[in-house]
């Protein structure tokens, strides 16, 4: 471990860490929005459910590097554009989340549904004020997995020149130098743990009733 290298490169490491966070977070937020919209449609129109499940699991099957590389061909961006990584990770996040969203939205019991109906809730209001809060634990379970997976997958982007901390891995390999590699690994794992902890806190804050029921 070469501590001098770390202290003389803190600026660069910080920059890569910032890139990494950006490349992981944007797809999560975008993927959640897509998953909520598609998931709500899939629950509202049950006929859409099987194709959504099939499509999302197919997307999830495609290796990350392959999807990063296919992206420019699909949406005609530049090959080294970070947007490829962002869109590819958005597809992964959405594919993972949509299943949880749909299962979560369908978890409302028929009695609750009827109560809402007889109280005059419109379908949209029922979705927003009843189904969505009930779906929250499942959605958060998906968010945690997707976030941690994204933070790990961003590194692969280093192979096409957009990798955040992954660039420390390629540096370490090219120079047979452990320090950048270990710094990258440690920061990436810490980032994943931190993000996971933040999501747990956010879930507590958003679902205060969960503590009361217990």
């Amino acid at each position: 471990m070469d501590w001098e290298w770390i202290s003389s490169n803190t600026g660069e490491i910080g920059g890569l860490l910032g890139d990494h966070i950006y490349l992981a977070i944007v797809p999560i937020v975008a993927g959640l929005v897509v998953a909520l919209v598609v998931g709500a449609l899939g629950v509202r129109f049950p006929r859409l459910y099987p194709p959504i499940v099939a499509l999302s699991s197919t997307f999830y099957t495609i290796p990350s590097l392959a999807l990063f590389v296919i992206m420019p061909g699909l949406i005609s961006t530049q090959i080294l554009d970070p947007i490829n990584v962002i869109i590819a990770l958005t597809i992964y996040s959405a594919s993972l989340l949509v299943r949880n969203v749909m299962d979560g939205l369908r978890a409302t019991s028929p009695e609750v549904r009827q109560s809402a109906l007889s109280m005059g809730y419109t379908p949209i209001r029922q979705l927003w004020e009843i189904d969505l809060p009930i779906a929250m634990p499942l959605v958060f379970a998906g968010l945690r997995v997707a976030t941690v997976a994204n933070i790990s997958m961003v590194s692969v982007g280093a192979l096409i020149g957009v990798g955040g901390l992954g660039e420390l891995f390629t540096q370490g390999f090219q120079r047979r130098f452990y320090t950048p590699l270990l710094v990258g690994l440690v920061l990436s794992v810490l980032l994943a743990l931190l993000a996971d902890a933040l999501l747990v806190l956010l879930q507590r804050w958003l679902t205060p009733w969960a503590r009361l029921v217990r």
Binding site: V145, V148, A149, I151, S152, M153, S155, V156, A158, L159, L165, G166, F169, T170, G172, F173, L181, G184, L185, S188, V189, A192, L193, D196
Partner: peptide, 10 residues
């Protein structure tokens, strides 16, 4: 899941 596979490989 938290450990980046690319880093492990290298």
């Amino acid at each position: 899941r938290a450990v980046p596979t690319f880093g492990v490989l290298i």
